[in-house]
């Protein structure tokens, strides 16, 4: 490979995406180790357990497969996987507009990499140009794919190495709290997040992380209601010629 080719290849990597993906990849390390150790103890051949990493590429679903194998029926395991993954439908709905301007190969390949972290980071980048969004998405997705498959394999080979008292198990909610706040750019989105958070708290006891889906649906509904309310109020203030509407008219272009 010539220097020019090498440089061009490096330009395809979004360096900002690399900086963003680093803190979300670190908490994935101990979880990957847990999965790796779990695979060696699961009631299935280790190589089949390892295949969950490249084929399923979803930590919670992989954990369900390897822990339920041997105790639950095939269909019970697959139902658990389906329920755990329903949140990915919502990720797809949220990112669909950003994928509309992507080439066909990207629409088919991109979703394969769409883990929680990739969704959370790239949902903040939907206003970028299609080429920039693609670079960002693929850089974060492929980095997490490589990190995840490496740590699961290492976990299988050498066992858990990160001490529990480092508390890296609590890093994901800390990261997602920050990403939630970054994603709120309008009042209805704030309402959606607030209601989504509270409802998922009330529904936290539901099995298979269903509380996430219930909370998210309630949040989206509340956000839509808030949006409609604000639009109606804006329409009314435009139609109204009363003196107290001067602030509203200043804000409009």
């Amino acid at each position: 490979m010539t220097d020019v080719e090498q440089k061009r290849r490096f330009d395809k990597v979004d360096r900002r995406a690399l900086a963003d993906v680093l803190p979300v990849a670190i908490p994935a390390v101990p979880f990957g180790f847990v999965i790796g150790v779990g695979i060696t103890e699961a009631a299935m051949p280790a190589w089949v357990g390892w295949l969950t990493s490249p084929l399923v590429f979803a930590g919670a679903a992989q954990l369900a497969i390897i822990t339920l194998a041997g105790t639950a029926s095939v269909w019970a395991i697959l139902t658990a996987v389906l329920v755990i993954n329903t949140r990915h439908l919502m990720y797809g709905a949220a990112l669909a507009p950003a994928f509309r301007h992507q080439p066909r190969w990207m629409r088919w390949f991109g979703p394969y990499l769409m883990v929680d972290q990739v969704f959370a980071l790239s949902a903040l980048q939907v206003d970028r140009s299609p080429a920039d969004f693609r670079r960002y998405y693929l850089t974060t997705g492929l980095t997490l794919f490589v990190v995840w498959n490496s740590v699961v394999s290492l976990g299988m080979a050498i066992g858990a190495v990160v001490p529990d008292n480092w508390r890296l198990d609590y890093a994901p909610p800390i990261m997602f709290a920050g990403l939630t706040l970054f994603a709120i750019k309008r009042v209805p989105a704030g309402v959606a997040a607030l209601v989504g958070g509270f409802v998922s708290l009330a529904a936290v006891g539901l099995r298979d992380r269903l509380g996430i889906v219930v909370g998210a649906l309630a949040g989206v509904l509340a956000g839509a209601i808030a949006d409609e309310y604000m639009r109606r109020r804006a329409d009314r203030s435009q139609a109204d010629t009363g003196p107290d509407m001067s602030v509203g008219s200043e804000a409009s272009p």
Partner: peptide
């Protein structure tokens, strides 16, 4: 609003 709602629900969960 799907992004903020699902991220908040995920965080709390």
């Amino acid at each position: 609003n799907v992004g903020p709602a699902v991220l908040a629900a995920l965080t709390i969960n």
